[in-house]
Design a binder for these strands. Structure first.
Length: 886
RNA sequence: GGGCGCUUAGCUCAGCUGGUAGAGCACCGCCCUUACAAGGCGGUGGCCGCAGGUUCGAGUCCUGCAGCGCCCA
């Protein structure tokens, strides 16, 4: 892409810049820096390709990383991928199923081979996407949650927690996914309201022939099939309706066995009939009740949620799917006259977040982490401010969960993942847990040992990620330099899954926090506010956007939308308009290069021309704004500030004003403008680089020569660090801009053709005039004036459109411009608006309390505004009456 | 049931420590002015969800209410 091309073409520049960066090892940590900065990329799952959320999160991280790198620090952005146990296994299983193959047909080893093949494919795709986005990750340090080092760290942690008694094996009720046939953690269950039924079933009293209400109770249930496993019917101890039944036996319908009526506070007498069937093995609340009352835990299901063949199950239901069983049981109850009534009922149903299968509470042996000992220091780390959430309110969410945390079920009945390093002995009860693979029992020495078939929850290895990627438990140089990492950038949806666990594991095993700041960003949604998902078909693919508009436009858009605390609705039009911004930048730079002469940027310049002085002071202010915004993770403000400066100040005003000097000056005066023009371009290219790396690098090399590399150059050119004061020059420039705006406004409202040059008279005091005269040619050029006549402050011009300003009055003679009626209408509108403003200001000043208690500066400003407003009003009224008298 | 967040121009959203509201898109004029029509210049458009309170002053702080959304149980 040549700099002479009149429009911006990202496709032509982006791949080339990436190659340059990679070839020069720009993304590797600097060896000789004293300060360090690091971020661990939340490792994408190897389940396919990246979506807009990844692009968003990665862009934020890359902005921070590139910024810190340019500030001279040794920077590590650690790259890696997550094996994502369940999610990845599902993807591969689906692919196999499409070919008519089940994973069990292949066997464990062959299946895992297939998953590794898929990991290579998906991982490669993801890395390619991240490069297209311009992410300056250290590509030489790619890690994977199942590579040797991470596996090593996982075993180390497992063994140590086991030895400390913080990992244990237990038989409990777990969330069971009957489709995936594995336990899942509480966090992986999504509860949603679904339409269902409330079946009211009669449980007859056992062995009593009493009549009336004592011969049965009615229980209401949403899951009638679980009655097969009922252990009791519970009522509230104070419920007068049922008090006399407590301790009596009931006949369990269809099952030919009896169950007791028990009393328990858990029952809400207001809800349903006040009688609750208790199925301890298939409901979390009932489980607790069952334990309190020593009820039998009757499991009625197989791993796939079919009715099992336990002795207490009536034969006709054995082998039925849970919903088939429900149908049969309802029909049979009805046939026996025990179905009292059926109501429509909406209730919460838990489904697996991956499989979407209805989760079954299920009694199994699983591995758990006793979490309280880990949670306490993790809570304290945030309480003490060692870790800071940004925005801060997310710490409430964190505390809320951490203070009510439950033991973590870490075993999964899957094939893809870290196999649990525990071996069972055929000859004794001993479980051998070890770093290394085991071939004899640590208890009795028997050679008949078998490794646990299960794998660990994928978040177990992710929880170690900030330090396992730095070669922990080895005491590596990287660990020394880059741990704790500076910030974790992620979405609020994984605060529990991941953030909390990293903090717990980090504190436990490194005694340090894994990161000092946690920047929580919003979720990306589509233009209608819907969550993007493949099934809805509303996914906006970042690569498609890059193909259409370029990575810089996409990145700028994402940065500009990164406001703290709100979901982001991504509208493609935004990306398009930022592509236009890139085009604007491209063309502004083209103009600069076409007019640079032999000049070079020079940040030490102290210019004399007001236009040049003004732009430098604006640039300096922008530098401070952007720096502050980035420090505070206000990416939208950084982007907005740059947008306003580059487009609003540099392009719209500076370049236009500089043309006068470039076209009319010679020698030193022209050179000064060329240098300032180049210096400020140089300056904002640097500031913008973290957000838009490709276009800025391209233009930087055009500016400084093909060997220059912005990526590792300085972020701040340091202008005005030497305390250069351009305030007076700036205020003179603002006066010129006010006049230009006033003239343009009249021209615009009168529909004067932009190309048409007109005559102007400006009435000002001697002092103001002497200040303005220096910029007369700029004023004439920007306002497209044919001639400009200076008049004394009190002068009036007949038959002219007038625009009164604070210390100047502009007259544009009407002849050939506009008619009197139009000008009268314009003045009328202006008077109305000004009167309103003046009345407001007067009102405030007439309040003595305001004058007494408001800060002096505010009062003074209001007085000034009022004086200016009144002056303007009287000028407008004079102009009005003169026009009316014509 | 508990907690959190949101409600500002037609649309999508900014507005950090209270000083009288901004951007992009859309819309309406005038322009192909030698960097840029992916552009320039000008303009229309807002009782800042509702009701109270604190304050000289509230979009901004406090309380209550309503609607929407999310998290946890």
């Amino acid at each position: 892409m040549s700099i002479l091309d009149t429009s911006y073409n990202p496709q032509a520049m982006e791949p080339e810049k990436n190659e340059q960066w990679l070839n020069s090892d720009a993304f590797k940590p600097k060896e000789d820096a004293t300060e360090h900065y690091s971020i661990t990329l939340p490792p994408p799952n190897v389940t396919g390709s990246l979506h807009m959320g990844h692009a968003f999160s990665g862009t934020i991280q890359d902005i921070l990383i590139r910024w810190q790198r340019m500030k001279g620090k040794s920077v590590l952005w650690q790259l890696g991928l997550d094996h994502a146990g369940i999610a990845t296994q599902m993807v591969v299983e689906r692919q196999l199923n499409a070919q008519g193959v089940h994973r069990r047909d292949l066997g464990r080893e062959a299946f895992i081979e297939k998953v590794w093949d898929w990991k290579a494919e998906s991982g490669g795709m993801i890395l390619g996407q991240m490069q297209r986005l311009g992410f300056s990750l250290d590509w030489s340090r790619e890690r994977f949650t199942m590579d040797e080092n991470s596996s090593n760290a996982v075993r180390k942690v497992f063994v140590r927690l086991f030895e400390e008694g913080l990992i244990y094996r237990g038989k409990r009720l777990v969330n069971w996914d009957p489709v995936l046939e594995t336990a899942v953690s509480d966090l992986e269950v999504v509860h949603e309201e679904e339409a269902g039924h409330f079946w009211h079933i009669q449980y007859p009293a056992a062995g009593v022939n009493a009549t009336g209400s004592d011969n049965h109770v009615i229980v209401a249930t949403t899951r009638p099939e679980t009655l097969l496993g009922d252990g009791a019917v519970a009522v509230h101890p104070d419920d007068e309706r049922y008090k006399h039944l407590i301790g009596k036996e009931l006949m369990l319908p269809l099952c030919n066995r009896t169950i007791p009526v028990i009393a328990d506070d858990y029952v809400d007498p207001e809800f349903g009939t006040g009688c609750v069937k208790i199925t301890p093995a298939h409901d979390f609340n009932d489980y607790e009740v069952g334990k309190r009352h020593n009820l039998p835990m009757r499991n009625i299901f197989t791993n796939t949620a079919h009715i099992n063949n336990e002795y207490f199950i009536p034969e006709q239901y054995i082998g039925l799917d849970r919903y088939e069983a429900r149908e049969h049981i309802i029909a049979d109850l009805e046939a026996e006259g025990l179905l009292y009534k059926v109501e429509e009922h909406a209730h919460k149903v838990g489904r697996g977040d991956r499989s979407h299968a209805v989760i079954e509470p299920y009694l199994t042996d699983q591995w758990y982490v006793a979490i309280q000992d880990l949670a306490d220091p993790a809570i304290k780390a945030v309480e003490d401010g060692d870790i800071r959430f940004v925005p801060q309110h997310w710490e409430k969410t964190y505390f809320e969960w951490m203070r009510n945390i439950q033991d973590w079920c870490i075993s999964r009945q899957l094939w893809w993942g870290h196999r649990i390093p525990a071996w069972y002995c055929a000859n004794c009860d001993h479980i051998t847990v070890s770093m290394n693979n085991v071939d004899c029992c640590g208890g009795c020495g028997s050679k008949s040992v078998r490794q646990d078939d299960d794998v660990l929850d994928t978040w177990f290895s992710s929880g170690l990620w900030p330090f396992s990627t730095l070669d922990w438990p080895t005491n590596s140089a990287e660990m020394e330099k880059f741990y704790s990492t500076n910030v974790l950038v992620t979405g609020f949806d994984i605060i529990f899954f991941w953030v909390a666990r990293m903090i717990m594991m980090g504190k436990k095993f490194t005694d340090k926090v894994p990161f000092k700041d946690v920047y929580i960003h919003a979720l990306i949604r589509d233009a209608q506010g819907q969550k993007m998902s493949k099934s809805k078909g509303n996914v906006v693919d970042p690569l498609e956007m890059i193909d259409l508009y370029g990575a810089d436009a996409l990145r700028f858009t994402l940065a500009h939308m990164a406001t703290p605390g709100r979901d982001v609705k991504l509208d493609i039009k935004r990306i398009e308009s930022n592509r236009n911004f890139m085009n604007k930048i491209w063309n502004a730079a083209r103009f600069v290069f076409m007019n640079r002469g032999d000049a070079k940027p020079d940040a030490s310049i102290v210019p004399t021309n007001d236009v040049n002085r003004w732009v430098l002071s604006e640039f300096h202010a922008t530098t401070l704004d952007v720096e502050k915004a980035l420090q505070e993770y206000r990416f939208n403000e950084a982007a907005g500030s740059l947008y306003n400066f580059i487009w609003g100040s540099y392009c719209d005003w500076y370049v236009e004003a500089a043309k006068v000097s470039l076209y009319k000056d010679e020698g030193a005066a022209k050179l000064e403008t060329q240098i300032v023009m180049l210096t400020v371009l140089d300056g904002w290219l640097r500031l913008l680089h973290p957000i838009c790396p490709f276009i800025t690098e391209t233009l930087f090399q055009e500016l400084h020569g093909k060997d220059a590399r912005l990526v590792t150059d300085d972020w701040n050119i340091g202008y005005a660090d030497a305390n250069v004061d351009h305030d007076e020059a700036s205020s003179r420039m603002h006066r010129v801009m006010d006049l230009v705006n006033a003239i343009r406004s009249i021209r615009g409202e009168m529909n004067v053709s932009p190309g048409k040059k007109i005559e102007a008279h400006i009435a000002v005091s001697e002092v103001v005039r002497s200040e303005l005269e220096g910029q007369q040619r700029v004023l004439m050029s920007l306002a497209k004036l044919e001639s400009l006549t200076w008049l004394p402050a009190d002068a009036e011009v007949e038959k002219a459109a007038v625009a009164p300003l604070a210390d100047a009055k502009v007259f544009l003679p009407l002849a050939g411009l506009v008619n009197v009626d139009e000008e009268l209408a314009r003045i009328e509108k202006n008077i109305t608006k000004t009167t309103k403003d003046v009345d407001g200001l007067k009102g405030r000043l007439s309040n003595p309390k305001f004058v007494d208690s408001a800060p002096k500066a505010i009062v003074a400003k209001v007085r000034d505004d009022l004086a200016a407003g009144e002056r303007k009003l009287s000028e407008l009224e004079i102009a009005q009456s003169k026009l009316q008298s014509l």
